[in-house]
Design a protein around this nucleic acid. Structure first.
Lengths: 337, 337
DNA sequence: CTGAAAGCGCTTACAG
DNA sequence: CTGAAAGCGCTTACAG
């Protein structure tokens, strides 16, 4: 492997001159620059990332702290990871995977070993224990998720409250006066999943604001079980006219469940849903929906963490990405009072 | 951040002694070692990965070269990435994501910049262009996939041929004499997807070996389209009695398609499938099937690439992970000749 | 078994 | 604008 010294010799300049054209920090005579660039090309030189990291104390790497093992149902993770890597690469950063079960330990080691310049925390929950090592070290990081208290750490997420309002309004506008909120199991809210909590709160407020009647149906996340739960509810005499779904498993299985039962409502119940865009793609979900915005969310996260790396003194940022509703039909005008 | 010098001062020894206990390469008096370890704990010291990389010319990082943008239907990627990271972490390696659209360029830059010690190539196809920069640099790498020609690069994959035989035999044992092979679209085979080619070849051979009749049904990978294609075929008068599926979209949508049509066969057709374990989990697929073995495959990949890094002179390895069949019913004894 | 010295490949003040 | 020198934090022969 060629080093900066080889390039300098080849171009007949000092090593620091090569470094100057590499970093672009200093002005170099165009002619000299050209000679250096020719030498670089000729020797197929590429700066040694580790050496640069040591000299600059910048690794140009971001760590993605993932808690996959706890996720029961997340086909979307790859989308986020790849989008993160793409966004980071654009900014000259690489992404390192930190997947250890012990998230706190992983964060600790990443910070202590100076393996990365900043962290992106996936799957953030309320009172996330991974915040502790970050705040004590004052390490650049951004949360994917929006807990009430971020303790001085930047955070970005889809605006689930706005998503909830869009969907409730859509049902209300279609004349519905009652809505069955097919949601995640209680355990998920208890675990502090920030997106689920924000969505549910907004649904309740908005439904009340419209003077509508709200029924909540907590669903498990196992495909089989969710199908059974949905089927049981749909079969009852007072079958719902409008379903508002926030539970990826339920969204995926709902078409099955509707098939399973002999739906009494003409054309079936109206269904609106908030789910990951990945899910919509995989299952070709036919509902009017608000989808996650992985690219926008991840792009914002990269921007925030890079800014934070550059200037730790920046004010704390809480960024909500605006969702939009995609109308796919599936909502019938209701005559039900 | 504490450095090795701080630790040395704290423990009252030379820096090289600290290094000795860190690397474990040299024998150190137990008492001295203890003093050093106490100092490390007290100062919360952790070796600077970049500095170590520079001194040892080992980054202790593996690059995952992913081609996501071309994948239409891959909820399984995250599973593989996380499994890879877990397996690497166990061995003291970290995983870096290389997701650039230009896979060849990504490989080039990773090698030239010495960012990683080895590469794991996802989604390998026949005549994969990413092999070129690897072979010319003689860089440690392992392919996830098994092209006919690996040009001296290690490769590991599920044994799709064995999987095919297991499934065909299962149908044959149940008395089926005809089988409809619901497979990927022609474009996928044309693109050189190694797993698809190996599976299809084995199916054809095995079916012929049993003297069975084979019908092939190429399906698109879009959920809507695949559902339409399947429905059309199932509705025909000569509806198939046995379906052998190798197409994740088709496997996922088949239950819908079976719902869509009024299946004439008592109990519906027999269905066996090879698909990703992630898919089985997400969709709760009820078919007897052979599933991918992400953990085993990825673990083997990490082992191979680490061995290759340690000893470039090792003989080239081609490792096939044995699949196993999971019987879930869905195969009815056939009276059809 | 321990320690002083050189070197890994860069960058960055600092003179010229 | 260019170049010689020091230093980033480690490891590794090599003396002692």
């Amino acid at each position: 492997m060629a080093t900066i010294g080889d390039v300098a010799r080849e171009a007949g300049v000092a090593r620091s001159t090569v470094s100057a054209v590499l970093t672009g920090r200093k002005l170099v005579l165009p002619e000299t620059r050209q000679r250096v660039e020719d030498a670089i090309a000729k020797l197929n030189f590429s700066v040694n990332a580790g050496a640069r990291a040591l000299a600059t104390s910048r690794t140009m790497a971001i760590g993605a702290v993932v808690r996959f093992h706890e996720a029961e149902f997340s086909p979307a993770l790859a989308t986020y990871l790849v989008a993160l890597s793409d966004a980071a690469t654009e900014q000259g950063y690489s992404v390192q995977l930190l997947t250890e079960r012990d998230g706190v330990g992983a964060v600790h080691r990443a910070i202590a070993g100076r393996r990365v310049d900043g962290l992106v925390l996936f799957n953030v929950v309320e009172d996330d224990p991974r915040l502790e090592p970050i705040t004590t070290a004052g390490f650049p990081a951004v949360l994917l998720g929006m807990p009430r208290e971020t303790r001085g750490v930047d955070a970005v997420d889809l605006d689930f409250a706005v998503g909830a309002r869009l969907l409730v309004d859509h049902l209300a506008d279609s004349g519905h006066r009652e809505v069955t909120f097919v949601r995640w199991p209680d355990s998920l809210y208890a675990a502090g999943a920030t997106y689920a909590l924000r969505f549910a709160d907004a649904v309740r407020q908005r439904v009340a604001g419209h003077g509508m009647k709200l029924e909540e149906l907590a669903c498990p996340v196992g495909p089989e079980q969710v199908r059974a739960v949905l089927g049981e509810r749909l079969r009852r005499a007072d079958a719902p006219h409008a379903l508002l779904v926030h539970n990826d498993a339920a969204a995926a299985m709902l078409p099955f469940a509707l098939h399973d039962v002999d739906v009494k409502t003409p054309g079936g119940p109206s269904v609106v849903s908030l789910h990951s865009s990945e899910l919509a793609r995989l299952y070709a979900l036919p509902f009017t929906s608000v989808e996650s915005e992985p690219d926008a969310v991840v792009r914002a996260a990269v921007e925030l963490v890079i800014n934070r790396i550059a200037d730790p003194g920046l004010p704390v940022a809480r960024r909500l990405v605006a969702p939009h509703i995609v109308e796919r039909g599936g909502v019938s005008r209701s005559a039900a009072s």
